[in-house]
């Protein structure tokens, strides 16, 4: 299959597919980064406050990079895309817009999310659309620390006190169906896989399951049985938490979207 070397060389359904994919990834990163940043100044340990804030910065930075690529593909600039859309125009999975909740949910969500990002970035790093392959390769280095962080936390909290185990299991029960929703297929997925850009969502989901299962087992946690994935986010159907999140995100921007801030 021929490689697509530049943004300008993209066209037709492949271009539409890449745009859809970039919106999904950018919106996921922006929202989870936003939620995680709500811990800054409030985390359970001072040192972890710092570490988790760095991870939020990484995620928001990744979102910015994806939006910049969208801009190169003819969409609006990064700030307008992040701060200036209506709720139904966002393409994030519901997992990332849920309230920050307690530390157990935060760690479980982050772990499940990072594993999905790891799987997707690994696939994209070798994809046929060169600018995206290069970006994915670059972003993977930051994901590595996130995975170390997630694993260390999961193994400790999952297996420590009765209280921590119960909280972690409850968090997993809550988060897992939403995490499956990260792999909600869209109409663009087939052209993307045909063009050798992004594997089918089902393939990514299987890889993700193989990645998270051993860590969850080591952490003494049980994957909830036969849960139904929470879909809708990829086509703009969001839980009320996203509207609440956007009200905050866009508060100052909306005072005057044309102004320089």
């Amino acid at each position: 299959m021929t490689k697509i070397e530049t943004c300008q060389a993209l066209s037709g359904v492949t271009k539409e597919g890449v745009i859809d994919l970039l919106y999904r990834m950018a919106d996921d990163e922006l929202m989870i980064g936003h939620r995680n940043s709500e811990w800054t100044g409030h985390a359970p340990i001072l040192e972890e406050d710092i570490a988790f804030s760095s991870m939020a910065q990484d995620e928001i930075g990744h979102a910015q990079a994806y939006f910049q690529m969208l801009h190169e593909l003819g969409e609006a600039d990064a700030d307008t895309l992040a701060f200036g859309r209506k709720p139904r125009e966002y393409r994030c999975a519901a997992l990332v817009s849920l309230q920050k909740d307690d530390w157990a949910f935060t760690i479980v969500r982050q772990f499940l999310y990072d594993a999905s990002e790891q799987v997707r970035l690994t696939a994209l790093a070798n994809c046929n659309f060169k600018p995206l392959a290069q970006l994915a390769t670059k972003l993977r280095s930051e994901e590595k620390y996130h995975m170390m962080h997630g694993r260390v936390w999961m193994l400790r909290l999952g297996k420590s006190t009765d209280e921590s185990h119960a909280l972690m299991q409850a968090a997993l029960d809550k988060a897992y169906p939403y995490a499956l929703g990260l792999f909600e297929p869209t109409e663009h997925c087939q052209p993307l896989s045909q063009a050798g850009i992004c594997p089918p969502e089902d393939d990514l989901k299987s890889q993700w399951e193989s990645a998270v299962a051993p860590v969850l087992a080591d952490a003494g946690l049980t994957i909830p049985e036969s849960c139904k994935p929470v879909y809708g986010g990829r086509v703009g159907k969001h839980p009320p938490e996203l509207t609440q999140l956007l009200d905050g995100l866009q508060l100052v921007y909306n005072i005057d979207p044309a102004a320089k801030w």
Binding site: I45, L46, E47, E48, I50, A51, S53, S54, Y145, M148, H149, V152, R156
Partner: peptide, 20 residues
């Protein structure tokens, strides 16, 4: 210095406090 419950976490925490 960092406060941490174990060596592995100390490394994880030190990375962001002293090498960010």
């Amino acid at each position: 210095s960092v406060h941490a419950p174990d060596p592995e976490m100390a490394l994880l925490m030190a990375k962001e406090q002293y090498a960010r």
